[in-house]
Design a binder for these strands. Sequence first.
DNA 1: GGTAGACCTGGACGC
DNA 2: GCGTCCAGGTCTACC
Length: 318
Amino acid sequence: MGSRLRIKPPEDYLFKRDVCSYGYFLLAPNRWDPESCTLTRPLLLDHSVAVLTIGQSKDAPGADLIVQSDIALDRAQQREARCRVERMLRLDEHDLSHFHRVDSRWKRSGRGRLFRSPTLFEDIVKTVTNCNVTWAGTMNMNARLCEVISPSFPSPRQLSRKRPATLRSRCGVGYRDERIVALAKLAVAGEIDEDWYADPSNSDEAVRERLLALPGIGPYAAANIMQLLGRYASLALDTESVRHGRDILGFEGESNDIMRRVTEHYERFGDQRFRSYWLDLWSFYEDRRGPAWTWDPATVGRTFTAALLTQRKRLATP
DNA sequence: GGTAGACCTGGACGC
DNA sequence: GCGTCCAGGTCTACC
């Protein structure tokens, strides 16, 4: 007999929309079921792995969230599960009024919370597996890390004990192998401290500098990890941003010029730049592929990016 | 400080 | 089915 938790979300929280708001909901060990609109994933809770299924009691903003565990959880495990789920769903961001004042386009819908992982370490590894590879490659790497090392996503300790060659040959992470092991060793040594990164008394610049010093983390990855930490002032610009600038914003020129103009375009959103940028990009995907909560992870979930949409369009054009 | 090339994988494409 | 080409961000060497 498992355990059942009930969580009261912010009143504008719509589970299916706010979970399916950032690509990581499609990455293992997360499993989104478009039929039931539930998210299932194993989670390590004090030496036991519990498979949690999360859903909303009613398909309405603010309705209670229900977390069903396949095993009985003691009080400490329930506290930990609640804490991890709240991190993933960003339920700590109770009040989106500042973002909605800065960018009123999303006020009516209540959009603004972007899905993330239960731990900062998982977010960092997922970001490294998202660099210099197509989205399908990112999905494969995360699936194999879970298959080969741990179904609940490898912990820093587990990864720190792996040989880079094992990650390369069995998990398909390629040249990222040594960087991932080095990151895990730093995490085990306590050098990746989420409290410090999230502490608002530390400036964005200080956080960015420290992230850039981590192995495998460059400008794009640092900016992406910053938004995952709730710091939205930096834009994580990649090739998708260039396509967004060219196809949606209508900018012309070389990639560098378009990147510069995309940056200028989002200046107006100040410390909320990333959220405005991301919701624009995500709306572009949803306009073409339907609401993200309807995406089947095995099909649309692998092919929703603008790069693949452009290829599909090219293939369809005689 | 700026730039070029290597890193690795998977998918598209041509034969 | 096989070989080739290309996309993708970070890192290092070099100017």
